[in-house]
């Protein structure tokens, strides 16, 4: 048991805060390049896996628009390519993704009522059909890693930007839907895994971790904004935090934030350890952190009043937090999943 960050981890956080606080860059590919030297892109490979949720939180706090795309590329696409992809993919895809030379994202979710991606052998490759949804940054990505099946075996498909017969449409929450219709992928861009490979649960955990840290990042940003506003002393008066109504609200916000951070760190550690209770811990964290962010934004707006609705204020994150709660699996669906795990259904 150890509840402390190491000095290396703290140094990483400091570096991230310094860079993210100064840069105006929000394009994911450029941000990854800018952050490459800190070790952020390769967290988990460089011995700093414990710092991942804290690093993710800072990205989501400072650059919420870019966060999701960057993380889907680094933490889902690159991680999955390295773990399940053929050796040839490592040099071709993984390293350039981590260096910010190639922008990747991942397509994991099946669209409701639509067929999942499937591939059937054709010539020296496969013809892909089906739909994936909830893909962040798909339009700007150089490559999209998608999960699907080939003859009932789990499979990974790599769609490059110039791949024909693929359509991308943006949904109301800003995420994209990919539809493939008889799309040809050469066999160098398809990996067929053994039927026993737990690809879907693995991808769910990686996605969950990103959602959890995003919620915590929003919560951290909102708490900081509200706290700063509450401590700003009007001329000749007391700071708002001196009023019990405001002070107590901030106390609850802080409690939710700190608890979210612990739950995020705990879930992340269990995911990395491939622990049997990783799914439960990450589901609990997904619900708690999403609900906490939702409560915190409501409180932040109450603390800041009209100022909370100015550009750059808490209200800017309102839609993102709500979208995070409803995107699959939603908070409600995750509660049901927790119940099912407990009941062994």
């Amino acid at each position: 048991m150890n509840f402390d960050y190491s000095q290396d981890e703290l140094d990483l956080f400091h570096s991230l805060e310094t860079i993210l606080g100064k840069t105006t860059e929000v394009r994911p590919k450029n941000l990854i390049s800018k952050l490459a030297w800190t070790g952020y892109a390769t967290l988990g490979e460089n011995g700093l896996a414990g710092a991942l949720p804290g690093a993710q939180e800072r990205l989501a706090q400072w650059k919420p628009a870019a966060y999701r795309t960057m993380e889907y590329g680094l933490r889902i696409a690159a991680t999955t390519l390295r773990r399940f992809g053929p050796e040839a993919w490592h040099a071709t895809w993984v390293t350039p993704i981590q260096q910010g030379k190639i922008l990747a994202t991942a397509a994991l979710d099946q669209a409701e009522g639509e067929p999942d991606l499937t591939g059937k052998p054709h010539d020296k490759g496969y013809l892909i059909n089906g739909t994936k949804t909830a893909i962040p940054g798909a339009i700007s990505a150089d490559v999209i890693l998608a999960s699907g099946t080939v003859e009932e075996s789990p499979a990974l498909f790599l769609f490059q930007k110039e791949t024909g017969d693929v359509s991308l449409t943006q949904g109301a929450t800003g995420l994209y839907t990919l539809t493939a219709h008889e799309t040809f992928l050469p066999d160098t861009q398809v990996a067929i895994l053994s039927k026993k490979t737990p690809l879907a649960p693995f991808l769910d955990l990686l996605k969950n971790r990103i959602q959890i840290a995003e919620a915590t990042g929003h919560a951290a940003a909102l708490f900081d904004q509200a706290k700063t506003a509450a401590k700003t002393c009007p001329e000749g008066g007391k700071p708002p935090i001196a009023k019990q109504e405001i002070g107590f609200k901030l106390a609850t916000m802080y409690t939710l934030l700190q608890t979210s951070r612990l739950m995020s760190a705990n879930a992340s550690g269990l995911i990395d350890a491939n622990a049997s209770d990783a799914a439960m811990a990450s589901s609990c964290a997904r619900v708690f952190c999403s609900d906490a962010a939702n409560e915190i934004i409501s409180s932040a707006l109450e603390v800041m009043g009209e100022n909370g609705f100015k550009k750059g204020g808490p209200a800017d994150r309102l839609a993102a937090i709500q979208a995070l709660r409803v995107e699959g699996p939603s908070v409600g669906q995750t509660k049901e999943a927790i119940g099912n795990m407990l009941l062994k259904y």
């Binding site: 612990l262 705990n266 609990c284 927790i338 407990l342």
Partner: peptide, 23 residues
């Protein structure tokens, strides 16, 4: 246990226990 209302209550208990334990 097959009803959502029950699962939601169980989830709330589990989430509390997980969070409180860490703190």
């Amino acid at each position: 246990g097959k009803f959502y209302a029950t699962k939601e209550k169980l989830a709330a208990m589990k989430i509390f226990a997980e969070a409180a334990k860490l703190l």
